[in-house]
């Protein structure tokens, strides 16, 4: 029943778009059938795979950098109250800076390429990872910490058996958020610079008047975003199945 109504809404919206575009009410906007044909064309003749690889490369490398550096910065800041309070205002300021502000600068420094989009996406995403790592490290149960201390547990075991399991769910959320931001900034930077990948294809096809292909790439951006988000949600659920926040599904 739910599936049926969801399908119905999608069919309805696509139908309305089809009718409006076919009767010329949307100007130059092509009908969904034409766009679907263009998507199919990009997949079949292989011209869509190169841009996909470029977008994914920028996304993956920037995400990897953001996660590694975010954890390295976040953990020390979250463990101690003093370092947390010293850094919180600075972090709040840095993470409100929109990453795209650096577009003109990185274009001058590194040109219109992978390096630029990676740097921009990294700067946009690293703060989400830092903040989530800090929240995770601060969530330590004081009783558990004192217990570990009074039993004289070795430092290494404290980290692997107490700190990491506490912080892991927060960090997983951080990775998922960072993944979404990295994709968004990568594509956005590829559009405004323009610098390869799906983003540049959108601009190129708009400029050459190939609107069906332009729409096809916009749709593919949305599909890619959904695919990445649901992959990470699934991954989060399966890796953290033991954690209380994921266990209460049955209740």
């Amino acid at each position: 029943m739910n599936r049926l109504s969801q399908l119905g809404v999608i069919v309805l919206v696509l139908g309305a778009w089809q009718v409006a575009a076919a009767t010329g009410q949307l100007g130059a906007v092509p009908t969904p059938l034409v766009v679907a044909g263009a998507v199919l064309g990009l997949v079949l003749d292989g011209s869509g795979w190169g841009p996909l690889a470029e977008t994914l490369a920028s996304w993956f490398i920037s995400l990897l950098l953001a996660v590694v550096i975010g954890v390295i910065i976040g953990f020390p800041l979250g463990v101690s109250r003093v370092t947390y309070r010293m850094s919180v205002v600075t972090l709040d300021f840095l993470r409100t800076i929109p990453a795209l502000v650096f577009v003109p600068l990185v274009v001058l420094l590194y040109g219109a390429g992978l390096q630029s989009t990676i740097l921009l996406a990294f700067f946009g995403a690293v703060w989400a990872m830092v903040m989530q790592t800090i929240y995770g490290a601060r969530d330590l149960d004081p009783v558990a910490r004192d217990t570990f201390r009074s039993f004289g547990v070795r430092r290494w075991d404290t980290v692997t058996r107490l700190l990491l399991p506490t912080a892991l769910p927060y960090m997983a959320t951080g990775v998922r958020l960072a993944a979404a931001i990295c994709l968004l900034i990568s594509i956005s930077a590829q559009i405004v610079i323009p610098a390869g990948g799906f983003g540049e294809q959108i601009v190129v096809h708009q400029l050459s008047g190939a609107l069906p292909e332009m729409f096809a790439y916009i749709v593919l951006c949305g599909v890619l975003g959904m695919a990445i988000d649901s992959t990470f949600r699934w991954f989060e659920r399966s890796v953290l199945a033991w954690h209380p926040s994921h266990r209460k599904v049955s209740s």
Partner: peptide
């Protein structure tokens, strides 16, 4: 999940 920046070329066109 549609990146709004991707709508920019379209919005400028329209």
């Amino acid at each position: 999940y549609l990146p709004a920046v991707a709508m920019l070329p379209l919005a400028i066109q329209l």
